[in-house]
């Protein structure tokens, strides 16, 4: 069945220059493998199509049941140059949590 990522994970995001980072954290350890399998760098790049101009990198932190994504070219130049409301990428976190996820056999 389809679930929203926000039901399985929480997140926090921030900036480094023109790159936004999103740390995605499984709400339960059992959800972490689902995130690893489904929330791939390619899938995240498609999710943010039109919002970012560069590639997406993904890093795994199994010790924290977390994934870290770097969204390059997300902030219109970043910092003081950016004209965006979210110039520091603070709410890319919840934008990622809008993603739909397949969860087999779970209610």
């Amino acid at each position: 069945m389809k679930r929203r990522l926000i039901e399985l994970a929480h997140a926090r995001s921030g900036d480094k220059g023109d790159t936004a980072n999103v740390g995605l954290i499984a709400k339960k350890p059992a959800f972490y493998p689902i995130l690893v399998k489904q929330v791939t760098a390619a899938r995240v790049a498609r999710h943010f199509k039109g919002m970012i101009t560069g590639p997406v990198e993904r890093f795994e932190l199994p010790n924290l049941n977390a994934l870290n994504f770097l969204l390059h070219g997300a902030l219109d130049g970043g910092g003081t140059i950016s004209l965006k409301t979210d110039a520091q990428g603070k709410v890319f976190s919840t934008a990622l949590l809008r993603m739909a996820i397949d969860v087999k056999g779970r209610k």
């Binding site: 926090r12 900036d15 980072n21 740390g23 995605l24 932190l61 924290l64 870290n68």
Partner: peptide
């Protein structure tokens, strides 16, 4: 949960 959110904040290569 709160501490993990802060750990991943502004992170690059962990």
């Amino acid at each position: 949960a709160c501490v993990t959110e802060q750990l991943v904040y502004e992170m690059g290569d962990p």
